[in-house]
Design a protein around this nucleic acid. Structure first.
Lengths: 363, 363
DNA sequence: CTGAAAGCGCTTACAG
DNA sequence: CTGAAAGCGCTTACAG
């Protein structure tokens, strides 16, 4: 009976037949016929409906096995009975941060029988819009917009539009790794306390005796850049230190540019004794620049990073930094996406990682 | 006319109506009726069929807009006309390696209009099997099995079964980051030359004058562990150095265990002047252990890693290591998955990153 | 260019 | 427990 596993196909395809990429595969009807039951009964077997005679069930299963039947999950999904999916949209799939958030999301999705679709927008609103459209058509259950985004009205409106469009197909939009949008507070955000992280760094530096504290990070524009810079400014205020604009340096989030900015700062004769950076990447750049100038770390210069990237604890000196709960961030966002947690803003605490790169100033 | 965007639903749902999670949404028929054309014509508009009168097309589009119509991609996919998907299966979504491969895959998939589904198996064959089943039901175009796997007949048979089962629904299975399976050479593998990477490290160490060279890595079992250890053994052979079993140490791929193994090795009085490690993680552990024992790096001990993880070039001493082409690995696997490249085994070259941790031995 | 109709591969209310 | 039938939301060969 092995010849039956492929249907005869020596006749012209009937009307409305699926496209060219389709295989002539065995379907429910074939299985039902082979098992001598109705399609309804066969369907019940695969749907896990208990109202099926044990004998019928066994025959259906045997036929399926023999014919090589594979349930069509697409048809099932169309009926609202299929695999559910959540989407993970990120600017770029880069580094351990992305990996940790993704792992968090996947762990709860997997545990709950959902699949996760991942795409990168490359920061292109065009592609972002396209992806949202595709995801709506695919009837995903939720879309997680992950990571820092533009902090402007244009993005806010885009996000609001996405949320509205997704709601139309019963899907939700969740912001993950950026704060709520003021003009659309209903759009749920799962974030970690970025200003508090930089604030902890500032508190520590002031406690150690620093007062000429510089900041190196990205300029205005993106949420993470602004949140962390905000933490620096707040920290100064809290300790009654006037903000000196010449101590706030702009650098892209890559080591080389951090080094460039730190070099300029350290040559400027500004009397800086400590640098707080937006990211560990930039902090590493500052390490390089300081060394190149013969400044010994940490004696002559304290540096604090942010992100607790792998290995920063193995640098010399071990980098004092802030650890965000990236995995947890993904977990919480996914839980909200799957209605396992209330649809409310979440702000997770960060951990200050006191290591060796921030010490009492020499003077 | 805004009240028309939701269908009247004060009647009992008809037979065969989709499940409870479905929204009463507007469909093609609604749009067609509103635009006063047939469903066929409306379908042609959304399918991008050029044989539609400009006026009809405009009316259909306007109606869709007004009614808030969203094409059902699931129905379309069922007809073989929808979004195609490729799946990315990995043991665990960890670190920059995962991120880089994923980014490579996504870049090709995205550029070619495909979505990518990502799942973690947690190394559980049960879950692996479940995922393959689901992916078959979902009619994915290809499944990428990413990363190191068990190197045994059990896995080989599982993989062969997956490939066969996937072929049944016209999908292909591609191994990515592990070598071909000897007993099933048709199963395409995209890998990087792991033995050659360790071999380059061995050549460099011998060239520098080392002959007591130890290896620390995972024991037998997984492909990556065996491939890299194999590179060490080959290197010894090539340079006519007898393998000393006491210089081959087993450690899990985490810093702490690397440190433990290195500590034991260095205390053993084996006269080791250099250590080749399976991964940078383990190399970092060796750094720690050596330092704890007062051994100065690199003068008294040379260390070579593998993976070129972020920041290893900023350690003291900067780690000499091997850089695998992870992004490219993802790109090539995805290209084969999408038939953009011939379905043949690929073995990418690695780059030896000569930095400061391997030097001429003191003696 | 267009429409009526058949079909894809399922699910399920209904009536035994 | 079971089957015939209607339905989901599309696509497309056919015949204008």
């Amino acid at each position: 009976m092995s010849g039956m596993s492929i249907k005869d196909s020596d006749q012209k395809p009937p009307r409305g037949t699926p496209g060219p990429d389709r295989v002539t595969a065995v379907n429910l009807r074939d299985v039902a016929a082979h098992a001598r039951v109705s399609v309804a009964t066969a369907s019940r077997v695969f749907a896990g409906n208990p109202n099926v005679n044990a004998d019928s069930k066994a025959r259906v299963l045997a036929s399926a096995e023999e014919l090589g039947y594979v349930v069509n999950g697409l048809a099932r999904a169309m009926m609202g009975r299929g695999q559910q999916t959540i989407a993970f949209l990120v600017r770029a799939m880069i580094g351990p941060t992305f990996a940790a958030i993704a792992a968090g999301v996947e762990s709860v999705a997997g545990r709950n029988g959902h699949m996760v679709l991942m795409s990168a927008t490359e920061g292109d609103p065009e592609r972002e819009r396209d992806l949202i459209r595709i995801l709506r058509e695919l009837r995903v259950r939720a879309v997680l917009l992950v990571g820092s985004t533009e902090n402007d009205a244009l993005f806010d409106e885009r996000a609001a539009t996405y949320a509205r469009d997704l709601a139309q197909v019963n899907a939700s939009l969740i912001l993950c790794g950026r704060p709520p949008i003021a003009s659309h507070p209903n759009l749920v955000s799962v974030n970690y306390d970025q200003p508090a992280g930089v604030g902890a760094a500032m508190d520590e530096l002031v406690r150690l005796g620093h007062s000429r504290i510089a900041y190196i990070g990205e300029g205005r524009g993106m949420t993470t850049a602004e949140l962390r810079l905000g933490g620096y400014e707040d920290g100064l205020r809290r300790h009654n230190i006037a903000l000196d604009p010449s101590l706030v340096c702009v650098a892209a989030n890559i080591e080389a540019d951090g080094a460039r900015a730190a070099d300029a700062l350290l040559r400027s004769g500004s009397g800086v004794t400590a640098i707080v950076t937006m990211t560990d990447n930039i902090a590493i750049g500052a390490y390089r620049a300081a060394r190149a100038l013969g400044i010994s770390l940490p004696d002559q210069l304290s540096i604090v990073g942010f992100d607790d990237a792998p290995l920063v604890g193995d640098l010399t000196p071990a980098l004092t930094t802030v650890r965000p709960p990236f995995f947890e961030l993904g977990v919480r966002a996914a839980e909200i996406a799957l209605d396992l947690a209330p649809s409310e803003h979440v702000l997770l605490p960060v951990t200050f990682m006191k290591r060796d790169s921030a010490v009492r100033p020499k003077a």
